[in-house]
Design a protein around this nucleic acid. Structure first.
Length: 825
RNA sequence: GCCGGGGUGGCGGAACUGGCAGACGCACAGGACUUAAAAUCCUGGGUCCCGCGAGGGGCGUGUGGGUUCGAUUCCCGCCCCCGGCACCA
């Protein structure tokens, strides 16, 4: 008997799949397509089992869908640009390209050793010029449409290193390397105008029925749409969502960044003191806000403006909690009906004027807090007596009619700043000419390649600014002296459209052929970590809309079904090198082989749940596969060459034969639904384990003697269905078993077993009988026993009569095929 | 504070549309095989109570109510855990 040694099988079958080009695909209009994608990887060096779980989930889906007759695209690639490689270069001196390529090679090996069925011929890394060329192409297209623009914006700056810091390089308000307190610098930077699509992105969420609710909520919050009105208090325009409270507006607050603040300072009695206070607030904004709550503070500007509804003058203050970037950077303060304004007014002794009352009762509330809910208006001129809901509309209209404001919608979403003062990214393809201004690099000159840089100091300007051959160019328009943009793009640009490139990875005239994208897109199944719920997944939806408006695609949404896979914990914590709790898949491969590892991570919990790693659990999965192995090994001789059990007719099979057949088909149904529709991969494995348990019981019943032809047929059907259905989870083991069963065509070309409803139908069923909702007995009956018969049988059951004797049977509820409940009083 | 998800045996989890709670696995216990062990195969198990026993009964899905013949599932209140957002006007 052949012992089960999965390690010995991995390489054999991986090589066969490669030489057979088993997972390569082309467009084929005769078959339904299925685009199965896992978020591509940042090549950090080593994948741990937490990463690998995601790839296995996708592989189970891809392998199943192939067997189910779909034309499956299952590609993989590398999110290869990024800060870690550049930081490592600063520390170790190894060029980012060198380390990145080495990491890719290692991680690719890991994935191949796991037997993930990728279409490797479509692989690419975003640091290849053939890829990032299209980032640049797209950038220019967006620039032409006004979707890419340049403006001043602030960045984190380290005085000591004389360099820009990314947000994640700021640790507790200081530079990650030297601890120097971070300051703010204004630089000219490039932005993508994602706000143009704010409403479109929000509306699109409605159609994402197969995304987790959690992700949709996070996206809605991120977009942050709020309806309100802009109202002018003299020269100051405020945004409010509560225009119904405007008669209670006793003050106007300006953000420290508000454009009018500088002028007010200049015109004040003591400009220096004014500016000092403003400067304090502006500095607070950056540092204090990140670490914790800041005390609400403000000061009077010495000015007043007129509330257009009351015609009364209200004072103008500068307040540190008002945000410059949101709305108009100015708000009306209604202390009676806004908690923040209330606290502020209490602190500084500003008037509090109640204009909304909770109910019909007129008691004025000298409450210790603001009344923030909707209610009925009081002291509000002609609007007194209206409900808040009505007033919101009427007062908005009134403002429009009197030309002092307008209803308005605000978003929290801001434009996407993509400039990075870094080396290891896509060069922004723009040229600055003294004569012509900003000039895009002509399309035929793309890609603008990253120049070779030998040493990385992490100090000074953008690394590209230190390469004169790169910086100094002639203007494409006038031929005069010009200089290149030296910033690179945020790496989220790379990942916002890579899934389109997989449809046509070698295209050198367009980012992708629209016809190919039309065939493959949208991605049917996309899985990855929930940490990408906002940025990556919104940017990708944004780019899809840009492609749509460029006429390259005709759909709005890139990902039909999204699965956010749970993390794998070790000792209760997320795996990480620094904690030293990483489980390396290669160790597991050596010890157990690829298949037990694959099966274990699928069985341990539903894909979206977090799991705790367990060596014992992995051994359990090994045991299950060994059990399958031994059973097939023992019975394949009997099963081989047997005909279909259907050929034995209705009476040709024994009771136990029929029972095993039924279990086989029931399992086919369960596994198919669990994998394909519910994506409950753990219960699919459970179902397969149950079938194996049944097979062992059946094998015991067959004894030592000859096996009847009918039993051989039933065995063959069960074993083959089992092997095929286990194969997405344990492809190497099952290929070997399939070969042992006499098949010459591999499993990758074998269809999924067909489910026969007629066979799966049980001959008899057990119906629980309750009395007053408590289980008292069971009846074994034919599945189509009529209701009246069930009712009579239940009432005649001695175990039931013990509860009904001497009582009145009020009613008998019969749920056909499910349950009987006798109600007595 | 707001939004979202969740709370089921010793553990991971199952229960699809309101119908037998605890499938499947882990760990554990007992048995078979073995000189012995490992491996393997078989069996057992929510909990409390009654019974020598076969067996019988009560309770049980965070908690308190409600709807229903019947609730892990639906509704209302509360407690706890996880995640996201948070001076957004």
């Amino acid at each position: 008997m052949a012992e089960y040694r999965p390690q010995a099988l991995d390489k054999k079958w991986q090589e066969r799949w490669t030489s057979a080009r088993a997972f390569e695909v082309a467009e084929d209009s005769s078959r339904p397509k299925y685009y199965c994608l896992e978020m591509f990887a940042y090549p950090s060096g080593h994948a741990h089992v937490g990463h690998v779980r995601n790839y296995i989930i996708g592989d189970v889906m891809a392998r199943t869908k192939r067997m189910r007759g779909y034309n499956v695209l299952h590609p993989f690639g590398w999110d290869a640009f990024g800060l870690p490689a550049e930081n490592a270069a600063i520390k170790s001196g190894i060029h980012p390209e060198t380390s990145t390529l080495a990491n890719i090679a290692h991680m690719k090996g890991q994935l191949q050793r796991l037997g993930i069925s990728y279409a490797w011929e479509r692989e690419f890394a975003t640091c290849e010029p053939t890829y990032y060329k299209w980032n640049q192409w797209l950038f220019i297209k967006m620039y032409e449409r006004g979707l890419a623009y340049r403006r001043r914006s602030s960045v984190n700056w380290c005085e000591k290193d004389q360099t820009v810091l990314a947000n994640e390089q700021v640790v507790d308000g200081g530079c990650w390397r030297c601890g120097t307190p971070v300051t703010i610098r204004d630089l000219e930077q490039w932005f993508f105008k994602i706000t143009e699509y704010a409403d479109d992105l929000l509306k699109g969420i409605e159609g994402l029925g197969q995304w987790p609710e959690k992700v949709l909520t996070m996206q809605k919050n991120w977009i942050g749409r709020s309806e309100g009105a802009r109202v002018r208090f003299g020269e100051i325009e405020v945004f409010t969502t509560r225009i119904d409270t405007i008669f209670g507006a006793t003050c106007v607050f300006l953000a420290p960044e508000h454009p009018l603040v500088d002028r007010y300072a200049a015109e004040s009695d003591d400009p220096a003191a004014f500016r000092r206070k403003v400067a304090t607030f502006r500095a607070q904004d950056r540092t204090a806000r990140l670490t914790g709550e800041i005390e609400k503070e403000g000061f009077f500007t010495g000015r007043s403006v007129v509330n257009p509804f009351t015609s009364e003058a209200v004072p103008v203050w500068v307040a540190n909690f008002v945000l410059g970037e949101y709305g108009t950077g100015a708000v009306m303060a209604v202390p009676a009906h806004d908690q923040r304004d209330f606290e502020f007014a209490t602190k500084y002794g500003l008037p509090i004027k109640t204009v909304i009352e909770p109910g019909p009762e007129t008691a004025t509330a000298p409450a210790p807090e603001a009344y923030v809910d909707y209610g009925r208006l009081v002291h509000s001129g002609e609007f007194t007596g209206l409900s808040s809901e009505t007033a919101l509309v009427r007062m908005g209209e009134w403002a429009e009619r009197n030309n002092i404001g307008a209803r308005s919608v605000q978003f929290r979403l801001k434009d996407w700043g993509i400039s990075r003062q870094r080396y290891w990214g896509t060069p922004i393809p723009m040229i600055y000419c003294d004569a012509c201004g900003i000039v895009p690099v002509p399309y035929e000159q793309l890609p603008v390649e990253l120049p070779a840089v030998k040493t990385f100091t992490g100090r000074g300007d953008s690394p590209l600014a230190q390469v004169p051959d790169f910086v100094n160019v002639s203007c494409p328009k006038c031929g005069g002296k010009a200089r290149r943009e030296t910033d690179t793009m945020d790496t989220f640009v790379d990942s916002s459209w890579y899934f389109y490139r997989f449809c046509d990875p070698a295209n050198d005239t367009l980012p992708f052929d629209p016809a190919k994208a039309k065939y493959w897109m949208p991605v049917d199944f996309y899985s990855g970590g929930v940490e990408h719920a906002i940025l990556h997944l919104i940017y990708s939806r944004f780019f899809t809309r840009v492609f749509r408006d460029l006429g390259l695609v005709d759909h709005d949404e890139p990902f039909t079904h999204l699965l956010t896979q749970g993390m794998v914990l070790k000792d209760g914590a997320v795996m990480s090198k620094s904690k030293g709790n990483v489980v390396d898949p290669d160790d597991m491969l050596q010890k157990y082989g690829a298949d037990p590892l694959r099966l274990y991570v699928m069985f341990v919990a539903p894909p979206e749940k977090e799991v705790e790693w367990s060596d014992a659990g992995l051994e359990g999965s090994w045991r299950f596969l060994a059990r399958v192995w031994r059973f097939v090994d023992q019975w394949c001789g009997a099963a081989m060459g047997a005909p279909s059990p259907a050929s034995f007719g209705a009476d040709g099979l024994s009771r136990t034969d029929r029972q095993l057949r039924r279990r086989t088909h029931e399992t086919i149904r369960r596994v198919t639904v669990d994998v394909e529709q519910r994506i409950h991969l753990n219960t699919a494995v459970s179902a397969l384990m149950e079938l194996v348990n049944d097979l062992y019981a059946y094998g015991d019943g067959l004894g030592q003697g000859d096996v009847s032809p009918a039993s051989r047929a039933v065995l063959r059907e069960a074993i083959e269905a089992l092997v095929v259905m286990v194969s997405p989870f344990a492809p190497h083991t099952t290929e070997e078993l399939w070969e042992m069963l006499g098949h010459t065509e591999g499993l990758t070309k074998t269809p999924w077993p067909a489910f026969d409803e007629h066979v799966a139908k049980p001959e008899e069923i057990v119906i629980p009988v309750q009395v007053n909702g408590k289980l008292r007995s069971r009846l074994t009956v034919a599945p189509d026993t009529p209701e009246s018969e069930l009712r009579d049988a239940a009432l005649a059951d001695p175990a039931i009569r013990a509860y009904t004797d001497g009582k009145t049977v009020k009613s008998v509820i019969v749920v056909k095929g499910k349950l009987i409940n006798v109600v007595v009083v």
